[in-house]
Simulated assay, not measured.
Amino acid sequence: MRALTPNETRVLATLMEKTRTVPDSYPLSLNALLLGCNQKTSRDPVMELSESEAQQAIDALKACSLVFEASSSRVPRFEHNFQRGFGVSEPQAVLLGLLMLRGPQTPGELRTNSERWYKFADIASVEDALAELKTRSEDGGAALVQQLPRAAGMREQRWAHLLSGEPSLQPFSQAGAGDAAIETEAEPVSLGQAERLQQRMAALESQVAQLQLQLAHLHKELGLSQA
């Protein structure tokens, strides 16, 4: 399978998202697909595809048997064939779709962002699926994800998909440049980076709230008063 263009990646991933999050509206019309591709939230990078660009991407994906046109509607509607096309499981397809839509993410971020797509039991199950996608080459296939160098201040390493070719490592190499980099002028934070930080903060706040509830329940079960 050749490397997908950015437009093809966005179209395919949007179909993968909508079949799981809004199944009643799936398959998607061209207009609905275009709206999904150009969303301002849960997208990195944010894109502004035109109708002709989206249609060109659809036609190219149809030629690769990754997208089909539904035959049961008067208005053309489109559906993806990702899992069969790439030979991946549902959990693996979910992770790839999220990486295609939102850019590089840690296993923790992937588990949080997958809530509406698929219920991973824990982070370990996310890591197992990522490892399987990475080691496909050992079975004669092609690796579909890559673990990126650890960014400064991050406890976990991010993962990126390889469906559009090798990911750019420039932001990550700059992050590990050492003390000399700290003294340089900070670069502006992109919209995608700001959104990921907000998502990570929201996820951490949710985890803290869940821990507080569990602690309160434990105190109640043990008959202890909370300090």
Rank of each mutant, 00 (worst) to 15 (best):
N7F: 02
V11Y: 08
M16H: 01
E17P: 00
E17N: 01
E17F: 00
T19Q: 11
R20Y: 06
R20Q: 12
T21A: 00
P23R: 10
S25T: 05
L28Q: 12
L30I: 09
L30V: 08
C37G: 07
N38V: 13
S42T: 14
S42P: 07
R43Q: 15
E48Y: 04
L49Y: 08
E51N: 10
A54T: 14
A57D: 10
D59N: 09
D59H: 05
A60P: 06
L61E: 06
L66G: 03
F68V: 05
E69T: 13
A70E: 14
S71M: 11
S72K: 09
R74D: 12
R77T: 13
F78T: 02
H80T: 06
R84P: 01
F86W: 15
V88E: 06
V88T: 13
S89N: 04
S89K: 05
E90I: 10
P91C: 02
P91G: 05
L95G: 04
G97L: 01
L101R: 15
T106L: 10
P107W: 02
R111W: 03
N113Y: 00
N113S: 10
R116F: 03
R116P: 03
R116L: 09
R116Y: 02
Y118A: 00
F120S: 05
V126C: 07
E127C: 08
A129F: 04
A131M: 08
K134M: 03
S137Q: 05
D139N: 08
D139K: 08
A142W: 04
A143H: 04
L144D: 04
L144V: 05
L148E: 11
Q157S: 15
W159M: 03
L163T: 10
E166Y: 00
P167V: 14
S168W: 01
Q170I: 14
Q170N: 13
P171L: 01
S173C: 05
S173E: 10
Q174E: 15
A180S: 09
A180L: 09
I182F: 04
A186Y: 01
P188C: 11
V189T: 13
V189A: 09
A194H: 09
R196E: 14
L197T: 04
M201H: 06
M201T: 13
M201C: 06
A203I: 07
S206K: 14
S206G: 13
Q207L: 10
Q207Y: 01
Q210H: 02
L215F: 01
A216F: 02
H217L: 05
G223V: 02
G223R: 01
Q226R: 09
